[in-house]
Design a protein around this nucleic acid. Structure first.
Lengths: 110, 110
DNA sequence: TAGATGTATCTATTTTGTAGAACAAATCGC
DNA sequence: GCGATTTGTTCTACAAAATAGATACATCTA
């Protein structure tokens, strides 16, 4: 069984997957904020991306600079086969742990 | 916005919620293994339960010792109102981050 | 009373999460 | 041309969560 990944690692992985061919640090960070409703620091995102690459779940390559203001080279990330497997595994676990939990949670007394 | 909880913290919280009135350390640990397909050490589970109580998401009380072999007192955990809110919040985020991710993940080339 | 069993606590370490300053490369406007 | 501005990444440090496993405890059984 492959090593489990962390919570932020998973969210970042999903975000990279969703962005497809346009997954680079700052864009991932923006998506993250939208989806989760909270802000992540620059550092949080980049270190996580780096860790995912170290684990072999992502790989990256640099793009050519763009002819626009601030258009420096981007580091584009992409899922590896292992990354896709990690996603499926995470999905399986998420489905399992949430199963049988009613959407509206009640307390008998509080 | 309340502080986010960790991955294992969430799974433990859900497990306690599901067990209702019979949520104590070792039982939670067994459920965890079944749901996730992996083993958690004793320490992993208890420290997580303790953290959740410290955060006010769970509360606990000791039972009387049971008249069975190994029947020492159990520590029963229960969701607090804050714990229930944390669950809902986690559910909202999980739904959001998984949205649009196809169940079958494909790689264009690998 | 020694061993088995089911339970909880304690201690230490590794892995993840988090922040933000520093650095880099491009355009814009004067 | 060159400083200001913009978009992007790297580096460094620290806090929080995850994890393991030894130890302690209470009860039955033989």
């Amino acid at each position: 069984m492959s090593a489990a990944i962390g919570q932020l690692e998973l969210i970042v992985l999903l975000t990279v997957a969703r962005r497809g061919d346009d997954a680079y640090g700052l864009a991932v960070r923006r998506d993250l904020s939208e989806r989760t409703g909270r802000d992540y620091s620059i550092g949080a995102v980049y270190t996580t991306l780096q860790r995912l690459e170290d684990k072999g779940l992502l790989r990256s390559k640099a793009t050519d600079p763009l002819p626009v203001r601030g258009g420096r080279s981007r580091r584009l990330f992409k899922l590896t086969a292992a990354g896709a497997r990690a996603m499926r595994e995470a999905e399986r676990i998420a489905t399992s742990v949430w199963a049988g939990i009613p959407s509206t949670i009640r307390l008998e007394h509080a």
